[in-house]
Design a protein around this nucleic acid. Structure first.
Lengths: 140, 140
DNA sequence: CTATATTCCTACTATCTCGATAGGAATACG
DNA sequence: CGTATTCCTATCGAGATAGTAGGAATATAG
């Protein structure tokens, strides 16, 4: 249960790759990597990863440099990228049931008795994801 | 993200229904309900709920009485049924990524740097689900 | 200006899961 | 025996997911 799609797993691994590249002494030297290079290093389908990287870029997690010699780098320090930012960029907000935000669904039977329970679950997940940064992950 | 299948939502609503039926003064009087009756009260597809109830029975969450006059009742008091018992009965163990239990997957690139992170997420979810009982839900 | 390497965009396909349905067998009651 | 119920198995359609394909846009190097 609660399995995380490969899309998200791949995205995180790609960001781990970038974060580790950026750990070098001189920043801005080795922190640029192409999608194809990451895909190869991580054994991820290159074309599939391309789409994931584009999405991470559109959400402001990474910065893309187009054209020859281009690639991706983290948009900010790994310690400033929370895991919840990544997850929401790739999958949208954590929402166990539709009823969490939309109370219109509370019409039939006991449909909404468990609503507070689900909201609590969302809180537990969100709190954990917000408490970890990309830096925490690469130091684990 | 982390959306809960209707199967689980339906199962919980059915159990809420049974738990509320069992709240009556005289236990064992009104605590028996047929799958069809629950389905009607909760606006759930009857045939679909049938399968869910059978599964909850096989996992020991409810007790079934077959034949005419039969139905389902909770196998134990609502306060002794943890939400994690229900979720695991219907969906199996919480496992964000396969890598959580199986460390064999840590072979390529940074595939397993996030492993501790995922294990931590599993822990956060499990802790929450184990902390709530069916009784907590019907009293919310 | 041209060749090349890269991101970016759109569309497609195969596979799987999920929700739901159908029909009927097994069981128990009166 | 007739009826009401759980229980079993098989199937189906819709949607999501993972991956593929082709090429347009963009930047660099020579």
């Amino acid at each position: 249960m609660f399995s995380v799609p490969t899309r998200t797993q791949y995205g995180i691994r790609a960001l781990v790759h970038l974060a580790r590249a950026g750990e070098a002494a001189d920043p801005a030297i080795a922190d640029l990597a192409t999608s194809a290079a990451i895909a190869k290093a991580e054994s991820i389908s290159p074309k599939y990863l391309e789409g994931i990287m584009t999405q991470l870029k559109s959400k402001g997690i990474v910065i893309a440099e187009r054209g020859k010699g281009g690639g991706y780098r983290l948009a900010r320090d790994a310690s400033a990228i929370r895991m919840i930012d990544i997850v929401e960029a790739l999958e949208g907000e954590v929402r166990p049931v539709d009823c969490v935000e939309n109370s219109d669904c509370c019409v039939q039977g006991n449909a909404c008795m468990p609503r507070k329970f689900w909201i609590g679950l969302k809180g537990a997940i969100d709190d954990y994801l917000a408490s970890k940064t990309l830096k925490d992950v690469i130091e684990a």
